[in-house]
């Protein structure tokens, strides 16, 4: 079979093409073709350098230039960024803790731009270097542990240093906006058949439910009209669960049909 260097080159090629948004089918085809070439080349005593020349990067770039980009790549990248923004904001809205201030804006921008770029670059570097091995998992942990700590630390800082407050925190308004946004996010992710993303954002909001019930049950300070709005918010969440349940059930049914 192939040498470690050849396998490493093919892995790098695959990762690079994926990160450049190339189509899965094209990636598989070129990888298989180069694998076939390398098997024959190594059997004849040639090395990976015979294919790549002086620069692996330049060679991968020359292959990448000839492959069309997946049309949905940019669209899905933008949708994913919007989804991440939703994951950060919606749970706070639902719990009624959300307050629009300069710190929140800066924090979310930093997480979206710097955090996403750092995650993609780090993941790529770690997998390129260690491949499918234990070291990769250790590397991922070493990246994610401080990253998560930074996220939590950042939340702590922005709560204590809100900067300029642009919109005051209001439990009712936050809950309604949060519930509507959550509905939209869940419905869109389900339409795109991204079950995991729908469940994930829902689970992120779930810890807020006892808090909402608590606030409603304390009664007194909440006006009658506002109670109605809270209830409608909860109903919206209940609708989400039902829609999600129905869609998951029908999807599983379809999968079963296909497998038969």
């Amino acid at each position: 079979m192939l040498s470690k260097e050849a396998e490493k080159f093919l892995r790098n090629l695959r990762l690079e093409l994926i990160s450049r948004g190339k189509r899965e089918k094209d990636i598989q085809e070129i990888e298989a073709e180069l694998r076939d070439h390398l098997i024959e080349a190594e059997a004849n005593g040639q090395s990976v350098e015979s294919i790549t020349g002086n620069s692996v990067k330049a060679y991968i770039r020359s292959i990448s230039e000839e492959l069309p980009r997946n049309k949905g790549f940019i669209k899905y990248s933008i949708l994913l960024l919007v989804y991440l923004l939703g994951v950060f904001i919606i749970p706070d809205l639902i719990s009624g803790d959300f307050e629009l201030n300069t710190s929140v804006i800066l924090y979310n921008l930093a997480v979206l731009i710097i955090g996403t770029a750092a995650t993609i670059i780090s993941l790529k570097k770690i997998v390129q270097k260690y491949g499918d091995s234990k070291k990769t998992y250790i590397g991922l942990f070493l990246f994610y542990a401080p990253y998560m700590a930074a996220l939590v630390g950042g939340q702590f800082i922005i709560r204590n240093h809100p900067g300029i407050v642009l919109a005051e925190s209001n439990f009712i308004v936050n809950l309604i906006i949060g519930a509507i946004l959550l509905s939209i996010f869940i419905i869109v992710t389900l339409i795109l058949k991204q079950w995991f993303l729908a469940i994930f954002i829902f689970l992120m909001c779930l810890p807020s439910v006892p808090e909402i019930i608590g606030k409603i049950s304390t009664g007194g300070s909440i006006l009658e009209g506002e109670s109605y709005l809270i209830i409608s918010g909860i109903i919206l969440i209940a609708v989400n669960i039902t829609v999600m349940g129905i869609l998951m059930y029908t999807s599983k049914k379809e999968d079963k049909k296909i497998s038969h």
């Binding site: 070129i30 073709e33 180069l34 694998r35 076939d36 070439h37 098997i39 024959e40 080349a41 059997a43 040639q46 015979s50 294919i51 790549t52 020349g53 060679y59 020359s62 292959i63 230039e65 000839e66 492959l67 069309p68």
Partner: peptide, 29 residues
């Protein structure tokens, strides 16, 4: 350089000058 033929093959294929077919390899790969 050995690898330089593959970007060319991709280009020729993209322009419709060549067609491809996958067949079983005799190297077992």
């Amino acid at each position: 350089s050995d690898g330089s033929i593959y970007p060319v093959l991709l280009r020729l294929s993209k322009k419709g000058y060549v067609q491809t077919e996958l067949k079983k390899s005799d190297t077992g790969g």
